[in-house]
Design a protein around this nucleic acid. Structure first.
Length: 205
DNA sequence: CACCAGGCAAGTA
DNA sequence: TACTTGCATGGT
């Protein structure tokens, strides 16, 4: 699968963000939301110089909410950004480079304890912000894997992740690319309302 | 108009 | 434990 997708897409260069904290913000804002709408919200945050844990905490929730309005669920997400910001400051005084030194499973537990951070958001942060070797599962991943008969369509998050972790020894760059490939494939060829996947790069499987 | 988008938490049985 | 529902904007 990886080979076919790499032949088709080349290097997708995920995650498009300058800093680790920007990755974290994007991971929260993109929950069940099109990335297009997240880009608008992040641009607003940059314009208002809010891309830092301390600034997010200081900003009034109603104003933060207005800035990220385009990303949807903005009242909930503004609270989630504040929660993860407080966590980062409490944990490492806002220094993500210091936080990065901790082990992946340790970091994951801490992230999951933050309100608004579930398994996909936590793993996205581990892989794309902290460069930990973690396979990120999402709705697209589950759809593609189950349509190809690799797992049941009712498989849970941890089981699907374990399936990959236990059977393949993938490094960080490959895990980064693979998740991006799966998302792009699903967006272009395997959306819910598309029955046939005509030119899907995985057609031969 | 209906449906979908790089989920999560809280409530219910 | 295994569902269900609220959260909300913007594109197709």
């Amino acid at each position: 699968m990886y080979g076919l997708l790499e032949d088709h897409f080349g290097d997708l260069g995920w995650w498009p963000a300058k800093t680790g904290f920007e990755v974290i913000v994007g991971a929260v804002l993109t929950q069940n939301t099109a990335w297009r709408n997240v880009e608008t919200a992040i641009a607003g945050l940059k314009k208002n110089r809010l891309i830092s844990p301390s600034k997010i905490i200081q900003e009034k929730q109603s104003r933060l909410s207005r800035v990220i309005r385009s990303s949807g669920y903005h009242r909930v997400k503004s609270l989630r950004l504040k929660a993860i910001s407080e966590y980062i400051i409490r944990e490492c005084n806002g220094d993500l480079n210091r936080m990065k030194r901790r082990h992946a499973d340790d970091l994951r537990k801490g992230l999951l304890a933050v309100k608004g951070v579930g398994p996909e958001t936590a793993d996205s942060i581990l892989l794309y912000a902290f460069k930990k070797p973690v396979f990120v599962v999402d709705a697209y991943t589950k759809r593609i894997f189950s349509r190809h008969g690799l797992v049941s369509d009712k498989v849970g998050y941890d089981d699907l992740q374990s399936f990959v972790h236990n059977n393949f020894d993938m490094k960080v760059p490959a895990l980064n690319q693979f998740h991006a490939f799966l998302v792009e494939t699903a967006k272009q060829f395997c959306r819910k309302n598309i029955k046939k996947c005509d030119k899907c790069p995985l057609g031969g499987l």
